[in-house]
Write a protein that binds this DNA or RNA. Structure first.
Lengths: 97, 97
DNA sequence: TCAATAAGCAACCAGGAGGTTGCCATCATG
DNA sequence: CATGATGGCAACCTCCTGGTTGCTTATTGA
């Protein structure tokens, strides 16, 4: 999931989709210097990470943002931060002792 | 930064360090199946991402966790989530209209 | 019905990521 | 001071990633 987010292009794609509008591949690769194929690959990576889903409608593939993994990532980082804060408190207590 | 976090080994290293204790390379690579060299490389990646810093003390290199980038990542994900929530509100308003 | 649009599929390529091995330098200490 | 612990450096290897090109297959709409 962090790996999926760890690429500029994919992060940009996710931002484009995170407003809730579902968009086609052609549309997502319009204002980019990459090939449609490259964008397709990135979208599949995002899909495998659960960040995005696709449905075929007519002749186009519409991609939609999925918020759950992002929420999970936030929770995870909160845990790391809490771990750190806990360590700080313990250190402070030790010093003041 | 997400890229730095997008690797199991590095995530594990960060967890080990996030309790605030500064640890040597030998120590960090003790209970892992990897070579000390591999661990060293990962630590450098984390360092380049600002997640960790190293100082040489005696014959060993002590690595310490830096919380700032993690905080920044949390803020970033909050923004994405807010963007999404905003989109939802707008959608709801539109539907109820 | 036929041309244009949207996208899937497959092969291919260069470069970087992750990992190993071997060797050398430095520090701590019995 | 000699020896073991710690780690830096460099070369090397393999495989995945990000990207391209070329071609085929729907779908749409004039």
């Amino acid at each position: 999931m962090f790996a999926a987010l760890g690429d500029r292009t994919r992060l940009a794609l996710l931002m484009k989709l995170s407003d809730g509008r579902t968009q086609s591949i052609a549309r997502l690769s319009a204002d980019t210097r990459l090939t449609r194929q490259a964008v397709t690959k990135h979208l599949h990576v995002l899909e495998r990470a659960g960040l995005v889903s696709s449905i075929r409608v007519g002749r186009e593939s519409r991609f939609a943002y999925h918020p759950e993994p992002v929420a999970a990532a936030r929770t995870y980082l909160d845990m790391v931060a809490a771990h750190w804060d806990g360590a700080l408190s313990r250190l402070r207590a030790m010093v003041e002792e």
